[in-house]
């Protein structure tokens, strides 16, 4: 287990209980989605994983060792766990793209030659090499997000945490980021932890889904299994992916014999529709 949380609770100084008794564990190489409405505690949870927030009670284990909060341990943690913030403007502070991506590796104490290599590789991976010498304010939001990801990639982390990776992106920007993330997970074995409220994105990306509601972990498991529990999804003020919803309606209102679990992606939906067509053909023959 790369991360393990035991009865984690966190109370902000104004008294709001942001997380309450959350226990979960993330395995290496997983693609994890934390799903919840605004204010459900996703970001608070993520901030705990890189030691920015300290739990009010409960324990956090990283790589089976309890998280330590001295400067050296935190430095080591942040070397291995990269964090991409929701708003790239929070993250990009340097006058040029290159300088910003170099920030992390330089903090790791690498030589300038190594840093240059790491910067080039990271920018190559996210497809932003040609913008190397440009200042961040020349870039679009999607490009900024990719540079922010490069800044984290350049540190060669084992885990990448992203807060709302696709918020405010256009369809193309969204699919590019998702493709990139899948590629990193499959190619380099990087564990991915994403917080999102974009339910349509989850099935395309995650193989583990955790649902947070009002600071509590209410469900976890495979996306397919969780989205089948339509009652629960509604209770926590989320909705099913559009496609899943369509099949649910077809099943309940039109009494079509849809197989459980309901399809989540276009591929699954296609299969199900073809199966239904086949089924009705056979019935006519009889």
């Amino acid at each position: 287990m790369i991360f393990k949380l035991e009865n984690l609770s966190y109370r902000y100084s104004d008294g709001t209980l942001a997380l309450s008794e959350v226990s979960l564990s993330f395995a290496r190489g997983e693609r994890i989605a934390l799903l919840g409405t605004n204010g459900s505690g996703k970001t608070t949870l993520l901030n705990h994983l890189i030691g920015i927030l300290k739990p009010s009670s409960g324990n956090i284990y990283f790589d089976d060792k309890p998280l330590a909060y001295d400067a050296k341990s935190l430095q080591n943690l942040r070397k291995r766990v990269g964090f991409v913030f929701q708003d790239p403007n929070d993250q990009l502070f340097a006058p040029t793209v290159k300088q910003d991506v170099a920030f992390g590796p330089l903090n790791l104490g690498q030589t300038p030659e190594q840093v240059k290599k790491m910067v080039d590789e990271a920018l190559e991976t996210v497809g932003m090499s040609e913008f190397k010498e440009k200042p961040p304010h020349f870039l679009s939001l999607g490009q900024k997000k990719r540079v922010a990801l490069a800044g984290v990639l350049a540190m060669q982390p084992e885990v990448i945490i992203m807060d709302e990776p696709t918020s405010n992106l256009d369809p193309r920007g969204t699919s590019e980021i998702l493709r990139l993330l899948l590629q990193l997970n499959k190619g380099k074995g990087i564990t991915l932890i994403l917080a999102t409220h974009d339910v349509d994105m989850v099935p395309l990306f995650a193989n583990k889904l955790y649902i947070l509601n009002k600071g509590k972990l209410v469900a976890h498991g495979e996306p397919k299994q969780i989205f089948s529990d339509t009652e629960l999804i509604r209770q926590v003020n989320l909705r099913s992916p559009r496609l899943t919803h369509l099949f649910e309606v077809l099943n309940k209102k039109n009494k079509l014999p849809i197989d459980e679990p309901l399809p989540l992606t276009i591929g699954e939906a296609r299969k199900e529709i073809l199966r239904l067509i086949e089924l009705s053909k056979n019935q006519k023959k009889i």
Binding site: Q75, R78, G82, F85, D87, D90, N107, M155
Partner: peptide, 24 residues
């Protein structure tokens, strides 16, 4: 607000009180 968020983001990337610049 921005200052605070930037500091958090920098801390997450191993900021230790000094911004090192790539001199190339």
């Amino acid at each position: 607000d921005q200052g605070e968020r930037t500091l958090v983001a920098m801390t997450a990337r191993g900021y230790g009180g000094e911004i090192r610049i790539l001199d190339d």
